[in-house]
Every structure is written in structure tokens, then in C-alpha cells.
Simulated scan of single mutants.
Amino acid sequence: MISLKNIINSHQSTLTKSELVICDYLLENSELIKNMTLLELSQKTYSSKTNVLRLLKKIGFSGFIDFKYYLLAQDTESDSIPFLNLINKKIAAIDIDSISVKLNHLVNESNNIFLFGTGQDQQIQAKNLKNYLLKSGIISTFIPLNINAELTNTVLSSLTSDDLIIVFSSKGDNDLLKKYFKDLNRHNTQLVSFTTFKDGWIQKQSELSISLGIEQFQDPILTYQSGMMHLLLNIISTKIQINS
């Protein structure tokens, strides 16, 4: 794999001084960036999200998530085949075909789809699924669960049996989830959950539970859970389409 330094050097003549400053940060802090959001990276480089994305596209990446995938792949190449094999096994253990069929059915049978994310990573994942659905012609609404309580309460109080809730959570077992979704059954609203860990509270409430199945505190690939979830979403989304 071509190193990040070589990638940047090959584009150096086309980069502005401010873009070169961002590049210096990318080279010196690649380990930290793997766990950052785009907003955090822009703040660390005293730039805007737009400028960071413009730079990444200049040097050959489709976006921030693509860049993080590259850093992840660079990790697995350097240490690494063992980690890559573990990731492949985790993904292969997920019954993607069965999940995709059921998710496709739930999405197509729903009048309204609401996507919730508990933390920053989970909110990015929810937004990505929203974009994937939109590309398939399916409109959904994203709500950051830990920020807009008023909007969350308004949505949940108006749910019907024709609506679909999709929740992204790492553990699937925190007080915030229990607060908002403990009475969901009385609406007969379908619930889909995407989680890193297995056997959490939210999974037991879900019509469809989608988990990476990572063991909390023990699994050596825990570091890569965010990239794995984005990969899983990408694979599943290719199978979602509007029923004719």
C-alpha cells in the first residue's frame, strides 16, 4: 500500500500552504485521527470541515470515512494480517443476506423511518445510513438522541405501527435508550438496532438486531469497530431497494 507521505508528496505541487499545514497534521497524528470525527479534525487543524474534505479529495480520497478506511487498512497491513483475518471473520459471521432481506422488508413497509444515534460515532453511522437510503429513493429522518430531547419526545409520542425506528448504539444498554424506548411496544412500532456489542438491552427490544458481536473489553479488534460498522452498512445498503 502506498504510504500517506508518498500520496501527499505526489500531490504537493497542487496544494496550497494551508492545505500543506493540514497534511503535516495528518502525517503526525494518523493514530489519533482514526478515532476523530470530521469536526474534531477540522478543529485540530484550525480549518473548516469543507476545507479538510476538499484536501482529502485533492489527494485521492472520496471523503473522510474513506480516509479513515485507508488508515485502518494501513494498520492491518503493517502489523497485521492477524487483525485483518479477525475482522474478516467477524463480518463473515454476520448473516448479511438474511439481515438485508428483513431490513429491506421493514424499510419498504414503513411510512416513516427515524434514525437515532447515541454517541458521535453512532450519529455518523446513522447519517451514513440516511444517505444510503436516500440514494435508493427512501427518505428518512435523523435525530441525535443525546442532544435534542424535545424533538425526540415529539417524534416518539406520535409514532404509529406503520413507523420504523432504527437505533445506533455501541453497547445498546444505557439509561438514555431505556428512557426513550422502554414503552415502544405500546405503539407496535418496529425497531431495528445496530450495535457494536451483543446482548444489550436494546437488542432484546428489536425486531431486527444487527451486531458486530464484539466482546466488550476483551476483543482485540475493538479499536476497529467504527470502521467495521461503516463497512457493514455499506454492504447492507447495496441490497436495499424500493419494492416495485
Rank of each mutant, 00 (worst) to 15 (best):
V101T: 15
Q125S: 14
I242N: 13
I7A: 13
I87T: 01
L53W: 03
F168P: 01
I147C: 10
N174C: 03
N174S: 09
L232S: 04
T238S: 10
L103F: 10
T196I: 15
D162R: 13
V21E: 15
L156D: 02
Y132D: 06
Q205K: 14
S18V: 14
I8E: 04
S169H: 07
D163H: 05
H105C: 07
S226F: 07
G60P: 03
T76A: 06
F197P: 00
E77M: 11
L151I: 12
Q123N: 15
Q12S: 15
S48L: 11
Q123E: 14
F217L: 09
N234I: 03
T189M: 02
R54F: 12
I166W: 00
S100E: 09
N108C: 02
S18Y: 10
K58D: 06
I165P: 00
K127Q: 11
M228S: 09
S211C: 06
S226E: 13
F168M: 02
L55N: 08
S110D: 01
D66Y: 08
E109Y: 08
L56R: 03
K57N: 11
L20V: 04
L212P: 02
L129I: 01
L32D: 14
L184R: 08
D95I: 11
S226C: 12
L84A: 15
L56E: 07
L159C: 07
M1L: 08
G172D: 00
S169Q: 08
S193M: 01
S158P: 03
M1I: 06
S78A: 09
I210W: 03
G137T: 01
I59Y: 09
I87W: 06
D163I: 05
L232K: 04
D66N: 15
S100W: 05
I143G: 04
Q225A: 15
N104W: 10
T196R: 12
T37S: 15
D162W: 04
K58P: 02
I202A: 02
W201M: 04
A149K: 15
E207C: 12
L103I: 11
K49R: 14
M1P: 04
Y70R: 05
M229C: 06
E109F: 07
T37C: 03
L159E: 02
G213Q: 09
E207F: 12
F116M: 05
L41F: 09
L55A: 11
D162H: 14
P82G: 09
I65T: 10
W201G: 04
L156W: 07
T152Q: 11
V192Y: 00
F116E: 00
T141G: 05
G119E: 13
L159R: 11
T16M: 03
N188G: 08
N35A: 12
